[in-house]
């Protein structure tokens, strides 16, 4: 299919969905917001060695919080001229954009097409920048800038950030140096020196991983495997019951045997023959059951995500379903004919 035909198919699908919805009436794909005005009287701050000081002032701003359509209907029913709960054009456009991206990604099920590639190009750029921004505000500002430019940070971003000790300031200058060296990777001549920063990252990761994996995986999981092979289960009256005791004991035995057999299968220093071979075979059966369960869980997780996307399309965008009662008809009817215009 040529790119132009692919575009036509995607646009046709969107037009068909919107057309069906519009023929039913009652509107679709709108996001409402509530206007919240905030006024704060700020006291004067005296000039100190860490702070430049600031005069007393009144700071005002308006925030728009997303609300369900019900709230808009109710507000309009009470006062049709109200401007507190209103339609948000940026968020409505965003909702339609989200619906377009969702359909564009789904279109890949047919084959690769310009719509999918457009969404792919968008997500590459957005996600790269998204994680950069998160890293900047969560790590670089409080730790690096908080260490080397503490005065600037408390005067503009984080007023409660405690003053760093001298060692931390030195460490942050060191971190800045290592970060700068790492960026030499982009240069063709100085790329070799970036290996120093990489070495630091590799070394710290290796040291951390040894401790964390031995502590939380190797030791914790081994300890958890030491289970009583006979596990008496008392009923509500305090008397030990045979059935639950058998099931609990069997479960513990199966876990201990399973872990030992799987580990035997992973142990390649001994040839898998005789008793070792039989234990390894039982280990394989356990692993197959584990992989089957993991497969089942993965499929369930993906189907749940798929259901969430379909719900987004049919509930948030097309307004064809309303499981949460966000657009209750009684409220709408009471509010009058303006609702679905």
């Amino acid at each position: 299919m040529s790119p132009s035909k692919s575009w036509i198919v995607i646009i046709a699908v969107i037009v068909a969905l919107v057309g069906i919805r519009l023929s039913i009436g009652q509107g679709m794909g709108k996001v409402y917001v509530e206007q919240v005005d905030t006024v704060v009287e700020v006291e004067a701050v005296a000039k100190t060695k860490d702070h430049d000081g600031s005069p007393a002032q009144t700071v005002k701003w308006t925030q728009f919080n997303g609300v369900e359509p019900n709230k808009y209907y109710a507000a309009q029913a009470t006062n049709p001229a109200q401007t507190v709960v209103t339609l948000s054009w940026p968020r409505t456009f965003g909702l339609w954009l989200g619906a377009f991206f969702t359909l564009a990604i789904f279109s890949f099920m047919y084959r690769d097409n310009p719509g999918y590639r457009l969404a792919e190009a968008v997500i590459i750029g957005v996600s790269a920048a998204y994680w950069m921004v998160i890293g900047f505000w969560d790590v670089v500002v409080p730790k690096l800038f908080g260490g080397i430019a503490h005065g600037f940070v408390i005067a503009n971003v984080l007023p409660t950030l405690p003053a760093p000790p001298t060692e931390q300031v030195i460490a942050m200058w060191f971190a800045l140096g290592l970060g700068g060296i790492l960026l030499m990777r982009l240069s063709s001549k100085g790329a070799w020196i970036s290996m120093w920063s990489l070495a630091f990252i590799i070394g710290v990761t290796a040291g951390l991983k040894i401790v964390s994996h031995v502590e939380s995986d190797l030791i914790a999981q081994s300890v958890a495997t030491f289970k009583p092979l006979i596990s008496p289960q008392a009923g509500a009256t305090g008397v030990i019951e045979l059935g639950p005791t058998v099931w609990a004991s069997l479960a513990n035995i199966l876990i201990v045997v399973g872990v030992l057999c799987c580990l035997t299968y992973f142990f390649f220093s001994v040839e898998h023959k005789g008793v070792v071979g039989r234990a390894a075979r039982v280990g394989i059966w356990y692993l197959m059951i584990t992989f089957g369960a993991a497969f089942g869980f993965t499929v369930m997780g993906r189907v749940a995500l798929l259901a969430a996307r379909v719900e987004f399309l049919f509930d948030d965008w097309l307004w064809l379903i309303d499981p949460a009662g966000k657009r209750v008809v009684e409220v709408a009817a009471a509010a009058g004919s303006f609702l679905f215009q």
């Binding site: 991983k209 040894i210 995986d217 999981q221 081994s222 958890a224 799987c262 692993l287």
Partner: peptide
């Protein structure tokens, strides 16, 4: 039961592998 046993063995195996690789580095 079965999934716990299998996963536990896999986690122990991974921990041993990561530790050995980290020590080599």
């Amino acid at each position: 039961v079965f999934n716990t046993a299998g996963n536990r063995a896999i986690i122990i195996g991974i921990a041993l592998g990561v530790t050995a690789t980290s020590l080599r580095i």
